[in-house]
Design a protein around this nucleic acid. Structure first.
Lengths: 264, 264
DNA sequence: AGTTGTGAAAGTCTTCACAGCA
DNA sequence: TGCTGTGAAGACTTTCACAACT
C-alpha cells in the first residue's frame, strides 16, 4: 500500500541543522530535560513490525533475542534494526542480545500503546464492514468505539456490539467517546466531508481508505491505504518482467484494453 | 499502511554508478536501443496516484493540466511531479501544460496497465471476502480470476461470479488461468505456505495482507499491507500529541493496558 | 507571460564496518 | 568470543531555482 504519509505541512521552512524525525520528549507540562531524541518516520513504521515479532517471541517464552534473529524475522537488515532500537533508547546487552519482555515494553511505550485509542470507523460498506468485524483492531488495543454511515439501511444495525449511527452524529459522538483515531472507508466523494467532521470533533489521526487526498489542518496526521495503487505498483513490476518466466505460459495473451475507471 | 516493498534481494553488490530505480526497456526479445531509463520505486507509487487524478480530469473533459494543478490534486509538490513525469519520458508543452489524455495513456503504459492482470485471491475470510466483492479490482483492470480458501463451508460458494476453490488447487488453477498477481488474505500461519504455492504456479507479484513477512525467491515482488502497523503509527503520533488538544476533553483517561495480541 | 524540464543542492534513510563492552 | 551501539560513507529522494521553450 502506498503509505503516503498524508499532508505533512509546515516543515519546509526549517533549514535544518539537526537530524530529522519526530521529537520524542513527551512535551509534558513540566519542562524537564527535554533532550528530545528524534525518531525518524521510517523507524516508527518498523517498530510496529518488530513489536509483532517480539510478541510472538514473548508468547514462546523466549528470554532474549539477537539483533540478527529479530531482524531476520522482521524482514530487515540487522544494522538497521540496531539503529532503530538505539534511537528509542533501548539497551541490549553486548554479547547477549535484547531482553524480549523489556524491549517489548519499550517499543509499546514508544508507540503510545500504553493506553488504548478509541477508534471511529466511518463508512460501513463493503470494506468498512469487514474492518468493523475485523477483530484485530480491538485485540491490538484499538477498540472500535463508534461506527457511522449515511445509508438508512445500515444506520441502527449493530456490528460486533457497536451500533451504526448516522454520519451527522460524528462530531458529537466522537467528542463524547474520546475518539482519537478515525478510519475513513467511504466512497471518495464523501471522504473530505467526513474527514472535516472528524477533525472538528478533535480527531488528530486518520487512516484513509478512500481514493482521495484528504486535506487537513496542520497537526492532523493522515495515512492513506490505497489498494488500487498497490495493485498498480505490482502491475508495473509484472510488466518489467521481474524475474523471467518460469512455470505457466508467458502469462495471459493480450486482451481488450482496460481503463482506469475509478474505485470503491 | 506500511508499504514494505518486501524482499528486495540481490541488489547489494552493485557499487552503483548510475541512478537507481527500475530499468525500463521492455527487455523485448529484439535488443533494440535499450537506453533503459530507470524509474525510481518512489515514482512508480506516485504514478498510480497521478493516474487516478488524470482519469477524473479526463472524465470531466479537461484537455490539459498544469503540473501545479495536477500536483495539488495528487497531494505532492509540483517539482516532484514534473520530475516524475519527465522520468517516464512524457512531454508536456511549456507554457501550456500536459495533454490529459496523452499523459493518461503514457502513465498507463508505464504501469503496465495496457492489458489486464488476472488476480488470485487466497483467503476468503472477513477481509478477503470484502476484497473479493470490492469491485474496484475488476473495474481497474485487475479482474479476480480465482478465489481460494480451505474452509469447507466456503469452498464451492460463489462470490461475484467466481467460485471459491480449495487452496490445494492453487498451483493448477493459477497456472491455467494465467494469474499474474496473487493476494494473500489468510491468517498469518497459512500465509507462507500459500505464498509458496502461488510462486510455484508462476505468480511473480504478491500483495500480502497477512501479518507476516513472506520469504520469496529473487524476482518475486511482495508488497505488504498491515492495518495494525498503520494504526500503531497513528498511535505514535497521537502520543506525541501532534497538534495540541482542541475540542473534546484531553481524550479518554487511562484504562487497562492493552497488549499486542496478534492480528488478521 | 506562463509553464515545463532539469542540474545542482539539500535532506533523509540505509548500510558498512568496527570500537567497545559483557 | 559474541553481539550491541554508532560514526562515517553511501544510496536514494526531495526541493530549489532557473534556463529553455511556446
Amino acid at each position: 500500500m502506498t503509505v503516503d504519509r498524508g499532508t505533512r505541512p509546515a516543515r519546509r521552512a526549517v533549514p535544518s541543522s539537526r537530524p530529522p524525525g519526530v521529537d520524542l520528549a513527551h512535551a509534558s507540562d513540566g519542562g524537564e530535560e527535554s533532550a528530545a531524541r528524534p525518531v525518524p518516520e521510517a523507524t516508527v513504521a518498523r517498530l510496529a513490525v518488530y513489536l509483532r515479532v517480539l510478541t510472538s517471541l514473548l508468547a514462546d517464552g523466549r528470554g532474549t533475542v539477537s539483533s540478527e534473529e529479530l531482524a531476520a524475522a522482521a524482514g530487515v537488515n540487522s544494522a538497521k534494526l540496531r539503529k532503530d532500537l538505539s534511537l528509542i533508547g533501548s539497551c541490549g546487552v553486548r554479547g547477549v542480545g535484547y531482553d524480549v519482555s523489556r524491549l517489548t515494553a519499550e517499543v509499546e511505550a514508544t508507540l503510545g500503546l500504553d493506553s488504548p485509542h478509541a477508534v471511529a470507523l466511518v463508512g460501513v460498506g463493503n470494506l468498512g464492514h469487514a474492518l468493523a468485524g475485523y477483530g484485530g483492531f480491538a485485540q491490538r488495543g484499538f477498540p472500535v468505539a463508534a461506527l457511522f454511515d449515511v445509508d438508512p439501511a445500515l444506520v441502527g444495525t449493530v456490528i460486533d456490539g457497536v451500533e451504526v449511527q448516522h454520519a451527522d452524529a460524528i462530531d458529537a459522538v466522537c467528542a463524547a467517546r474520546g475518539v482519537t483515531i478515525g478510519v475513513v472507508a467511504t466512497p471518495a466523494e464523501a471522504a473530505q466531508r467526513v474527514c472535516d467532521h472528524l477533525v472538528s470533533a478533535g480527531v488528530r489521526s486518520i487512516l484513509n481508505f478512500a481514493p482521495t487526498v484528504l486535506s487537513v489542518p496542520a497537526g492532523v496526521e493522515v495515512r492513506k491505504v490505497d489498494l488500487a495503487v498497490e495493485m498498480q505498483v505490482l502491475s508495473f513490476h509484472v510488466a518489467r518482467r521481474h524475474g523471467t518466466v518460469s512455470a505457466a505460459g508467458p502469462a495471459a495473451p493480450s486482451r481488450p484494453t482496460p481503463r482506469e475507471v475509478f474505485s470503491r
